[in-house]
Write a protein that binds this DNA or RNA. Sequence first.
DNA 1: CTTGAGCTGTGTGTAACACACAGAGTTATA
DNA 2: TATAACTCTGTGTGTTACACACAGCTCAAG
Lengths: 156, 156
Amino acid sequence: MKVTQLANKLGVSADTVRFYTRIGLLNPSKSPNNGYKTFNHKDMVRMQFILSARNLGFSVEDIKVIFSKTDLGDSACQLVRELIKVKLLETEQQFNEMVKLRSKLSKAIQDWSQMPDNIPTGNMICHLIENTNQEDIVSEELDVPHCVNETSTEVK
Amino acid sequence: MKVTQLANKLGVSADTVRFYTRIGLLNPSKSPNNGYKTFNHKDMVRMQFILSARNLGFSVEDIKVIFSKTDLGDSACQLVRELIKVKLLETEQQFNEMVKLRSKLSKAIQDWSQMPDNIPTGNMICHLIENTNQEDIVSEELDVPHCVNETSTEVK
DNA sequence: CTTGAGCTGTGTGTAACACACAGAGTTATA
DNA sequence: TATAACTCTGTGTGTTACACACAGCTCAAG
Ligand SMILES: [Zn+2]
Ligand SMILES: [Zn+2]
Ligand SMILES: [Zn+2]
Ligand SMILES: [Zn+2]
């Protein structure tokens, strides 16, 4: 099987197969006469596994680690159980950030609909964005830091 | 102001400032004697804007487009209003994918806790992952594609 | 044999920085 | 003033998971 045949059979691009080959997840043999890579049943099984794992959010690095066990004939089940727990935590982290960002964006869209268009000045590029962020910081620091002593520093 | 001074004043790393400089968002002058970059008030204002915009999820490319307007003295407000609407859509898209992935992961963790550890075979690397994905596809295709005709293809 | 379409491997680009590192500047000590 | 130690700078490269470009090769039709 050549790269495009494998790709078509699994519904991915040939470049994707080439990529996984390049990083060593697939190990096709090289045809001696034309140098083309020849994929076999084992590569097909590995490729299917890769797609399933990626579908669950596993990274290529995770898959490499998994293969490093299974290639020795060892079960990867325990490893996989641990990896997916970490994955769930990461996903919930990102989920929370998504929620925060989403509400920030919604609020900004509403607020901005009432605000005028301003032209940039030497201290403000777009008041919509710059003011939105200051609400975010709340009372942590009332005044934005500025290059106050810049003359004294520039004197060198 | 040198790169580290600006970075410290805004609470970012010097590498971040260098990065924004490298891609042209900041335009410090170069000191003629030692070649060090010298940042001024304008760079500070731009840097603050960048941080505010990034905090709202704007990409560096978005910020470049915004600057291309404001550097001409034009208001970026309308542009910014449009950009943030797109951003919200993208965020909700990603949010939905997060939700799907999260439930997939939770379900997998539960299901896998009842399943035994298996050793890899020639057709299955880790049944946990491979079987999980098949539930996902449901009845789209019952049997997984395999290199059935591989002999006929390999005959070349 | 020639032409042309199709396929292949390899090199490079992507986003937003982080890290490594050699060389230059700065400070301290003698 | 010399010299060692320490800090700072710019630049080159690495990161993720591919996608794209492209020259050269293969293979079937004529
Ligand atoms: Zn397993
Ligand atoms: Zn200032
Ligand atoms: Zn504006
Ligand atoms: Zn097979």
